[in-house]
C-alpha cells in the first residue's frame, strides 16, 4: 500500500514537472495518475479504490489546482465509471488499457468542468485538447499495460536460466 502511495505521489510530482516552464504545451494534456484508476479497474482492486481515487483527486487539487474539491469529485466519478466499465469489458489487453485511459481522461475533464462550472469558474478547454489529452493518456496507459503484459521479471528469470544452462 505504501508503495502505491509513494508511486501515486511520484506520478503527481511528474505531472507537475510536465507542466514545468519550457516543457511542450501538449505535455500538460497527459494525465499520468490516470493509470492508477485503470489499474484499479482492470486488476479488480475492489470498490475501495474509488475512495483511493477520491484521495488521489484531492492530492491532484492540492498539487495542480487552485481550488480543492472538484478534483476529488472528478477523480472519484472517473473511478466509478471505469469500475462499471470493467464489469462489462472482459478484455485486459494493452488495448483495453489504452481505451480505459482515454475514456477516463474524457470523463475526468468533463466532470471537472461541470464541477467548476457550478462554481461559476470558467474552464478553458476545447474538443481538440480533450481529444489530444485522451489520446496521449490512453497511450500512456496502454504503454503501462503493454509493459505489464511483457512480464519482465518472468522473462528475466527465463533469460537467467537459459544463460546458466548454456
Amino acid at each position: 500500500m505504501t508503495v502505491v502511495v509513494v508511486l501515486a505521489v511520484v506520478t503527481l510530482a511528474a505531472q507537475r514537472l510536465l507542466c514545468w516552464p519550457g516543457m511542450p504545451p501538449e505535455a500538460g494534456l497527459v494525465v499520468l495518475p490516470m493509470v492508477w484508476l485503470v489499474v484499479g479497474a482492470l486488476l479488480g482492486a475492489g470498490r475501495r479504490f474509488i475512495y483511493l481515487a477520491l484521495t488521489l483527486g484531492l492530492g491532484w487539487d492540492l498539487v495542480l489546482e487552485p481550488v480543492i474539491g472538484p478534483g476529488g469529485i472528478a477523480w472519484s466519478a472517473t473511478a466509478v465509471l471505469l469500475a462499471a466499465l470493467a464489469t462489462v469489458v472482459a478484455d485486459r489487453s494493452s488495448r483495453a488499457w489504452f481505451l480505459f485511459g482515454a475514456a477516463g481522461t474524457v470523463t475526468l475533464v468533463l466532470v471537472r468542468g461541470a464541477a467548476l462550472g457550478l462554481l461559476g469558474v470558467p474552464v478553458a478547454w476545447s474538443w481538440v485538447s480533450l481529444a489530444l489529452g485522451s489520446l496521449l493518456t490512453g497511450v500512456w496507459c496502454g504503454l503501462v499495460g503493454w509493459i505489464r503484459a511483457l512480464d519482465v521479471p518472468q522473462r528475466w528469470r527465463a533469460y537467467r536460466i537459459r544463460k546458466l544452462r548454456s
Binding site: 480543492i68 476529488g72 457550478l118
Partner: peptide, 14 residues
C-alpha cells in the same frame, strides 16, 4: 454525499 461536500468545500474557496 462526498461529492456534495467537496463541491461545497470548493465553493468556499472560489
Amino acid at each position: 454525499l462526498l461529492w456534495v461536500l467537496l463541491e461545497l468545500l470548493a465553493a468556499t474557496q472560489v
